[in-house]
């Protein structure tokens, strides 16, 4: 899955679930990048304004739920997304990887 596509899906999920913007920022996105994502969602008619705020259109729901590789609807409905902020470059088998303690969501 392309990262940008994954960000857009996350944006759609946050709008559908009335969530805060924090998960996108945690991925390292700036507000300028969030601006571009919102533009893409509005221009592509994936979200629409209603009285209570913004909701997904049928097209937006389909986009959120579909598998980016096959285009078919995913069994999880698009609610499970890769944790892009935790993605790292591939390491050689002898390398030792120490995750950043402060950024880690695991409690020690």
């Amino acid at each position: 899955m392309k990262i940008a596509d994954s960000h857009l899906r996350l944006l759609l999920r946050l709008i559908a679930g009335r969530g805060s913007i924090e998960p996108l920022l945690k991925r390292g996105l700036t507000y300028a990048q969030v601006w571009n994502l919102i533009g893409e969602a509005l221009d592509g008619k994936l979200i629409i304004k209603v009285d209570q705020g913004y909701v997904l259109t049928a097209l937006g729901t389909k986009r959120m739920r579909s598998d980016p590789e096959t285009g078919k609807s995913r069994s999880d409905g698009g609610w499970i997304l890769p944790e892009e902020e935790s993605r790292i470059e591939k390491k050689a088998s002898e390398d030792v990887y120490l995750p950043h303690l402060r950024k880690s969501s695991f409690k020690i």
Binding site: L11, E22, L24, L25, G39, Y54
Partner: peptide, 14 residues
């Protein structure tokens, strides 16, 4: 820290 900032508000601002 966007914890308190609903995505909806950011879209509205846009």
């Amino acid at each position: 820290n966007g914890k308190k900032l609903p995505t909806d508000s950011v879209v509205r601002l846009y």
